[in-house]
C-alpha cells in the first residue's frame, strides 16, 4: 500500500468514516440484557412449567416475571454461590420482604404500549406452547442476553393468517 498515492484528506476521511461507523454500529447494536441472578432455566423446566414463575402466562394478559419470593418460596438457601451471590441473611430478608430492595429482573421481551396482547388468549384459549413465540428455553443454562426470537408484527400476522384468525388492526392496536 502506497500511502503517497492518495491525499491525506482521503485517509482523514477514511479514518473519520471508520470511527464514525464503528461508534454508530456499537451505539445502535442491540445491547445484551444482563440479569441480576444467573437463573438456570434448564434446571427448572425439567421439573416445572413456565407458569410457575411467569405467573400470568396462562391466566393473565401479561406473563410477568417472578418476584424474588417465588424463588425463596422453594429455595430455603441461596440457590447459587460465587460472585454476586446473596448471603443467607439477605436471602431470608428477601423472603420476608424486609431489608434492601430485592433483585429485579430485566425484561427481554418488551411489548410496545400501542399493542394489546393477551397471553391467556394464546396459551390458554388457542393452546399455543410458550416456545412457539419465545423460543425453546429448556436447554438454556444461563439467562439469555438477547431474545431467542425477535418478534415483529409480520410474525403475528403470518401466524394469524395461517390459522385463519382475525387480522383486523383494531383488535390488537390501541
Amino acid at each position: 500500500m502506497t500511502l503517497g498515492r492518495r491525499s491525506k484528506w482521503v485517509w482523514a476521511a477514511t479514518a473519520v468514516a471508520f470511527c464514525g461507523s464503528a461508534a454508530g454500529a456499537v451505539w445502535l447494536s442491540p445491547r445484551p440484557t444482563r440479569q441480576p441472578l444467573p437463573y438456570n432455566h434448564a434446571a427448572h423446566t425439567a421439573k416445572s412449567d413456565c407458569v410457575l414463575c411467569h405467573q400470568g402466562s396462562r391466566d393473565g394478559l401479561r406473563a410477568g416475571l417472578p418476584g424474588i419470593q417465588v424463588c425463596t418460596g422453594c429455595h430455603a438457601t441461596p440457590p447459587f454461590r460465587g460472585a454476586g451471590a446473596p448471603t443467607q441473611a439477605q436471602w431470608q430478608a428477601w423472603d420476608t420482604g424486609d431489608g434492601d430492595a430485592p433483585p429485579v429482573w430485566n425484561r427481554l421481551f418488551r411489548l410496545p404500549s400501542h399493542v394489546f396482547f393477551s397471553h391467556r388468549r394464546h396459551t390458554n384459549v388457542a393452546g399455543l406452547p410458550c416456545a412457539r413465540c419465545h423460543g425453546d428455553m429448556k436447554d438454556r443454562r444461563t439467562p439469555p442476553e438477547f431474545p431467542l426470537r425477535t418478534l415483529k408484527m409480520r410474525d403475528c400476522i403470518g401466524c394469524h393468517e395461517a390459522e385463519k384468525v382475525t387480522t383486523d388492526c383494531a383488535r390488537c392496536h390501541r
Binding site: A17, F18, C19, A22, G24, V26, S29, R31
Partner: peptide, 20 residues
C-alpha cells in the same frame, strides 16, 4: 472506495463484539 471501505471496516468491528 477507500473511504467506504473504512466505514465498512468500522461497522464490522463495531458489530463484531466491541459492544460487549
Amino acid at each position: 472506495f477507500t473511504v467506504i471501505g473504512g466505514a465498512a471496516a468500522g461497522i464490522t468491528i463495531g458489530r463484531a463484539g466491541l459492544a460487549n
